[in-house]
Design a binder for these strands. Structure first.
Lengths: 107, 107
DNA sequence: TTAATATGCAACCGATTAGTTGCATATACT
DNA sequence: AGTATATGCAACTAATCGGTTGCATATTAA
């Protein structure tokens, strides 16, 4: 899975709200998940599908309702992508500091 | 700044490629940053503007060229947003484990 | 069995996005 | 001064997105 797709799925306030509602690990029916979002059920459903396609949430049919739960692994890989960038950045800072120390006339 | 906008800006392979090219802390002219991306300069420029609007990169005019550099703070706040979600998740796991231990008949 | 509940799918529409081409402009080199 | 370089801005188009309305369907309750 492309990490860009994960970020894209996270790039909307309504979808982030859904993720936050699920972040405590609870399972919710789609109906309760959509409550109070300020858009129609079908509109919310499209957002949910984006999260499902990005494998950020899992859908499971239980009788007449569908249960939604968070899949934390995709979220984790997005986080480590950013962490990887920051690692690069930190290496540069260390290299820069070493260079300054080595060439510091006052040392 | 809304974190959703940050994620949205990161949600594109070309923009991620630009971020990665800048992640070592180097400053690059827009021309060199756009090299080999497989789209026109103006197309790439639009992507760069999205990153700039989201405050993921900083643009600085230097003579006839514009220098681009990464702004790591926005990236960091995106990462901590995810970390916050994971913290919620972990709390749930701990609570669940405690519950199981307390109610474990074999204990 | 009839009715209510929970949900899905498709069509449609306006707004935004991603990309292009074309033109303008300022800086640097000769 | 004249030319090449590095860049920006605007207009246009096709595709995608975000949202709606309408209809279909399966499960549960009376």
């Amino acid at each position: 899975m492309l990490v860009a797709e994960t970020f894209k799925a996270l790039g909307d306030p309504i979808r982030l709200e859904m993720i936050e509602r699920l972040s405590d690990g609870s399972r919710r029916s789609v109906g309760s998940l959509f409550d109070g979002l300020g858009l129609t059920r079908q509109g919310a459903r499209k957002h949910l599908q984006v999260l499902a396609d990005a494998e950020l949430v899992t859908l499971e049919i239980k009788g007449r309702q569908t249960e939604v739960s968070l899949d934390p692994t995709t979220l984790a890989s997005a986080k480590s992508f950013i962490a990887g960038l920051e690692l690069q950045w930190d290496r540069r800072l260390v290299a820069l500091r070493d260079f300054v120390e080595k060439n510091d006339a006052s040392g």
